[in-house]
C-alpha cells in the first residue's frame, strides 16, 4: 500500500454503484436486472444514474416476477452473459428460491460439470429500519447451507467496491448480501480501490484475549464492542468472515489457536444458523484449543417485530456482545 495514495470520501452505496459502473464498463456481457433498478434508481439508490449512463438494455427494470427474472439471469449466464440480478430484499428472494436452489446451484452438477453459471445475485438483508417481519430477515446463513453457490457479505467500503467484479469473474453463482443498514456507511476509500479477493476471511482488529467472529451488518457493532472491551482490559480479535460459503476456517481457527476463546455474532436466528455451523466446526477441528465454551450472540427466535425497542432486542447489539465476551473470558478452564 502506498501511504501517499489518495482517498475519497464515499459511502457503501456509492462504492456499490462504482463497482456496478466499473463492471458495466469493463465487459459488454455485464447487465443489471431487477425491480426498480432503472428509472427509480434502485430501491436503495444503489443504481441511481446508471440507466442514463448505460441505457435500458443493460440497466433493465423487471416486472415483480422474482422467479422469472432470477431464472432469466441464470439462463442468460448459461448463454454467455454476466448478469447482475438485484432482488430487492432477501425476503423477496424466497419467491425465487426454486430458481436459485433447483437451477443455479444444481445445473452444473446434474449435467456432469458441462456448464458454469457466472451469475451474481445481489440482495439487501437484515433488520434495523422498523420494517417488520417481511422486510427484515437475514437469510444469508440459510443460503450458505446450499452447495453450488457462493455467499459473500460485504461489510466495508472496500468490499462493497471490490467484491462485485471478483464475484462476476467467478464461474459459479454468487449471492451478495448487502445489509441495508450499511448503505449509508461513510468513510475514506482509496481512490484507486478495485476488485478484492473473496476467498478469505480478514482480521479486522487484532487482539489476543478472545476471537469475535462476525460478518456483514454485525461487523460494525462487533468492532464497537471490541473497543468497549479494550477499555476494560480485554483485547478482542475481530474476524470478518466476508464469505459465508465456502467458510475460511483456517483464518478462524488460526485466531482461536492464539486466543483460545470465541464468540460468534450472527444476526440470523440461532437455531440452525451459520453461527451453529462455525461452532460445530470448532468442535470438530479445534476442541482442544478451547479454554471456554464457544458462545453466540444471535437473532432471537422471533419474526422481526415493528416497534423499535423490540426490533433492537431481537438482533445482536453492542451491549450483548460485550456481556457475552466478558462471560467468555471470565470462564477460565
Amino acid at each position: 500500500m502506498n501511504d501517499a495514495a489518495a482517498t475519497v470520501r464515499t459511502t457503501y452505496r456509492e462504492a456499490l454503484r462504482a463497482a456496478l459502473r466499473d463492471a458495466l464498463t469493463r465487459d459488454e456481457r455485464v447487465f443489471l436486472m431487477g425491480e426498480d433498478v432503472g428509472r427509480y434508481g434502485g430501491t436503495y439508490a444503489v443504481s441511481k444514474g446508471l440507466l442514463a449512463e448505460f441505457g435500458d438494455e443493460r440497466v433493465r427494470d423487471t416486472p415483480l416476477s422474482e422467479s422469472g427474472f432470477v431464472g432469466a439471469g441464470i439462463g442468460a449466464a448459461l448463454n454467455g452473459m454476466l448478469p447482475v440480478v438485484e432482488v430487492m430484499t432477501c425476503n423477496f428472494s424466497l419467491l425465487a428460491l426454486d430458481q436459485i436452489v433447483n437451477n443455479a446451484a444444481t445445473l452444473r452438477h446434474m449435467s456432469g460439470g458441462q456448464f458454469s453459471i457466472p451469475l451474481v445475485i445481489r440482495m439487501a438483508t437484515g433488520a434495523g429500519r422498523q420494517l417488520a417481519a417481511q422486510h427484515s430477515h437475514s437469510f444469508e446463513g440459510w443460503y450458505a447451507h446450499i452447495p453450488g453457490i457462493r455467499i459473500v457479505t460485504p461489510a466495508t467500503l472496500e468490499d462493497a467496491r471490490g467484491m462485485l467484479w471478483t464475484a462476476l469473474m467467478d464461474p459459479d453463482p454468487v449471492i451478495m448480501f448487502e445489509n441495508a443498514l450499511l448503505y449509508n456507511l461513510e468513510g475514506e476509500l482509496a481512490a484507486d480501490a478495485g476488485p478484492v479477493d473473496i476467498n478469505r476471511a480478514v482480521v479486522r482488529r487484532a487482539g489476543q484475549d478472545l476471537t469475535l467472529v462476525t460478518y456483514g451488518g454485525s461487523l460494525g457493532k462487533t468492532l464497537a464492542a471490541a473497543e468497549v472491551l479494550a477499555a476494560q482490559g480485554v483485547q478482542a480479535e475481530v474476524i470478518d468472515l466476508r464469505t459465508l460459503r465456502p467458510l475460511d476456517m483456517p483464518t478462524v481457527l488460526g485466531s482461536l489457536a492464539k486466543t483460545h476463546r470465541m464468540v460468534i455474532v450472527d444476526e440470523g436466528w440461532k437455531s440452525g444458523s451459520l453461527a451453529a455451523e462455525i461452532m460445530a466446526r470448532v468442535m470438530e477441528e479445534a476442541f482442544f484449543d478451547l479454554d471456554a465454551p464457544v458462545a453466540r450472540v444471535c437473532g432471537v427466535e422471533v419474526p422481526i417485530p415493528y416497534p423499535k425497542h423490540l426490533e433492537e432486542a431481537a438482533i445482536p447489539q453492542v451491549a450483548g456482545i460485550v456481556a457475552t465476551a466478558l462471560r467468555t473470558v471470565g470462564h477460565h478452564a
Binding site: 432470477v70 431464472g71 432469466a72 441464470i74 439462463g75 442468460a76 454467455g80 426454486d98 430458481q99 437451477n103
Partner: peptide, 12 residues
C-alpha cells in the same frame, strides 16, 4: 422451472 431459464437464454 425451465421457462424462466428459456427467457434468459433468449435475452442473451
Amino acid at each position: 422451472g425451465g421457462l424462466p431459464l428459456a427467457a434468459g437464454f433468449a435475452l442473451a
